[in-house]
Protein backbone atom coordinates (compact mmCIF):
# COMPACT_ATOMS: atom_id res chain seq x y z
CA UNK A 1 0.00 0.00 0.00
CA UNK A 2 0.99 3.61 -0.34
CA UNK A 3 1.94 5.48 2.78
CA UNK A 4 3.23 8.97 3.43
CA UNK A 5 6.84 9.60 4.30
CA UNK A 6 8.57 12.73 5.60
CA UNK A 7 11.77 13.82 3.89
CA UNK A 8 14.01 16.32 5.63
CA UNK A 9 17.00 18.00 4.02
CA UNK A 10 19.97 18.11 6.38
CA UNK A 11 23.35 19.70 6.07
CA UNK A 12 26.10 17.24 6.75
CA UNK A 13 27.01 18.55 10.19
CA UNK A 14 27.49 16.85 13.49
CA UNK A 15 24.34 16.76 15.60
CA UNK A 16 21.91 17.48 12.78
CA UNK A 17 19.99 14.26 13.16
CA UNK A 18 20.00 14.60 16.93
CA UNK A 19 18.21 17.95 16.52
CA UNK A 20 15.39 16.37 14.58
CA UNK A 21 15.13 13.34 16.83
CA UNK A 22 14.94 15.60 19.87
CA UNK A 23 12.35 17.87 18.29
CA UNK A 24 10.09 14.96 17.37
CA UNK A 25 10.69 13.21 20.69
CA UNK A 26 9.82 16.30 22.72
CA UNK A 27 6.56 16.49 20.86
CA UNK A 28 5.74 12.87 21.50
CA UNK A 29 6.13 11.79 17.90
CA UNK A 30 7.60 8.34 17.49
CA UNK A 31 9.69 7.45 14.45
CA UNK A 32 8.73 4.03 13.24
CA UNK A 33 11.46 3.92 10.65
CA UNK A 34 13.98 6.19 9.08
CA UNK A 35 16.91 6.19 6.75
CA UNK A 36 19.47 8.83 5.89
CA UNK A 37 21.21 9.01 2.55
CA UNK A 38 23.96 11.47 2.07
CA UNK A 39 26.14 13.11 -0.53
CA UNK A 40 29.40 14.80 0.44
CA UNK A 41 27.87 17.79 2.15
CA UNK A 42 24.20 17.15 2.67
CA UNK A 43 21.81 14.33 3.38
CA UNK A 44 18.12 13.56 3.26
CA UNK A 45 16.46 11.90 6.24
CA UNK A 46 13.38 9.90 5.29
CA UNK A 47 11.14 9.27 8.21
CA UNK A 48 8.00 7.20 8.80
CA UNK A 49 5.94 8.27 11.81
CA UNK A 50 2.53 7.13 13.03
CA UNK A 51 -0.02 7.91 10.37
CA UNK A 52 -2.11 10.27 12.49
CA UNK A 53 0.95 12.29 13.47
CA UNK A 54 2.53 12.93 10.10
CA UNK A 55 0.92 16.32 9.54
CA UNK A 56 1.81 17.44 13.05
CA UNK A 57 5.40 16.33 12.44
CA UNK A 58 5.46 18.11 9.10
CA UNK A 59 4.21 21.40 10.57
CA UNK A 60 6.53 21.10 13.50
CA UNK A 61 9.60 20.65 11.29
CA UNK A 62 8.43 23.37 8.92
CA UNK A 63 7.98 25.85 11.77
CA UNK A 64 11.55 25.13 12.80
CA UNK A 65 12.76 26.10 9.31
CA UNK A 66 13.57 22.60 8.12
CA UNK A 67 13.22 21.84 4.44
CA UNK A 68 10.66 19.11 4.84
CA UNK A 69 8.39 17.51 2.28
CA UNK A 70 5.87 14.67 2.22
CA UNK A 71 5.99 11.98 -0.45
CA UNK A 72 4.03 8.84 -1.09
CA UNK A 73 6.04 5.66 -0.96
CA UNK A 74 5.19 2.00 -1.17
CA UNK A 75 4.98 0.00 1.99
CA UNK A 76 5.14 -3.77 2.01
CA UNK A 77 4.50 -5.86 5.05
CA UNK A 78 5.52 -9.46 4.58
CA UNK A 79 6.54 -12.50 6.62
CA UNK A 80 10.10 -12.27 7.78
CA UNK A 81 11.45 -15.32 6.02
CA UNK A 82 13.84 -16.14 3.18
CA UNK A 83 12.72 -15.43 -0.36
CA UNK A 84 9.80 -13.05 0.26
CA UNK A 85 11.69 -9.98 -0.74
CA UNK A 86 13.08 -11.72 -3.83
CA UNK A 87 9.55 -12.35 -5.09
CA UNK A 88 8.54 -8.70 -4.61
CA UNK A 89 11.62 -7.43 -6.40
CA UNK A 90 11.25 -9.85 -9.29
CA UNK A 91 7.67 -8.79 -9.87
CA UNK A 92 8.56 -5.10 -9.89
CA UNK A 93 11.47 -5.69 -12.20
CA UNK A 94 9.31 -7.68 -14.65
CA UNK A 95 6.87 -4.78 -14.81
CA UNK A 96 9.69 -2.38 -15.62
CA UNK A 97 9.56 -0.61 -12.26
CA UNK A 98 12.93 0.48 -10.98
CA UNK A 99 13.78 1.22 -7.39
CA UNK A 100 14.97 4.70 -6.44
CA UNK A 101 15.66 3.73 -2.85
CA UNK A 102 14.32 1.46 -0.16
CA UNK A 103 14.79 0.56 3.42
CA UNK A 104 13.50 -2.16 5.72
CA UNK A 105 12.71 -2.59 9.34
CA UNK A 106 11.42 -5.49 11.42
CA UNK A 107 8.79 -5.93 14.11
CA UNK A 108 9.75 -6.12 17.75
CA UNK A 109 9.23 -9.87 17.59
CA UNK A 110 10.72 -10.11 14.07
CA UNK A 111 7.77 -12.04 12.66
CA UNK A 112 7.11 -9.51 9.96
CA UNK A 113 9.40 -7.36 7.87
CA UNK A 114 8.38 -3.92 6.71
CA UNK A 115 9.71 -2.56 3.51
CA UNK A 116 9.54 1.04 2.30
CA UNK A 117 10.09 1.26 -1.44
CA UNK A 118 10.35 4.37 -3.57
CA UNK A 119 10.19 3.61 -7.28
CA UNK A 120 9.99 5.45 -10.57
CA UNK A 121 6.31 4.47 -10.76
CA UNK A 122 4.81 4.17 -7.30
CA UNK A 123 1.20 3.67 -8.49
CA UNK A 124 2.14 0.69 -10.62
CA UNK A 125 4.40 -0.67 -7.90
CA UNK A 126 1.51 -0.43 -5.49
CA UNK A 127 -0.75 -2.48 -7.75
CA UNK A 128 1.88 -5.15 -8.21
CA UNK A 129 2.76 -5.38 -4.56
CA UNK A 130 -0.93 -5.58 -3.54
CA UNK A 131 -1.37 -8.63 -5.74
CA UNK A 132 1.50 -10.59 -4.27
Amino acid sequence: MLIRQLSVFLENRQGKFAEIARLLGNNNINMKAFTVSESDDFGIARIIVEREKIDTAYNLLKSHSYAVSIHQVNYLNSPNKPGTMAIAMEELSKAGVSIEYMYAFADDDSHNSHLVIRTNNDELANRILSEL
Partner: peptide
Protein backbone atom coordinates in the same frame (compact mmCIF):
# COMPACT_ATOMS: atom_id res chain seq x y z
CA UNK B 1 19.39 27.62 -0.56
CA UNK B 2 16.83 25.66 -2.52
CA UNK B 3 13.25 26.97 -2.43
CA UNK B 4 11.02 24.86 -0.11
CA UNK B 5 8.93 23.40 -2.93
CA UNK B 6 12.02 22.06 -4.67
CA UNK B 7 13.32 20.01 -1.78
CA UNK B 8 12.72 16.38 -2.48
CA UNK B 9 13.20 12.95 -1.00
CA UNK B 10 15.54 12.04 -3.83
CA UNK B 11 19.14 12.94 -3.36
CA UNK B 12 19.98 12.53 -7.03
CA UNK B 13 17.67 15.37 -7.99
CA UNK B 14 19.42 17.73 -5.61
CA UNK B 15 22.81 16.60 -6.88
Amino acid sequence: EVKPEYYTDQINQLI
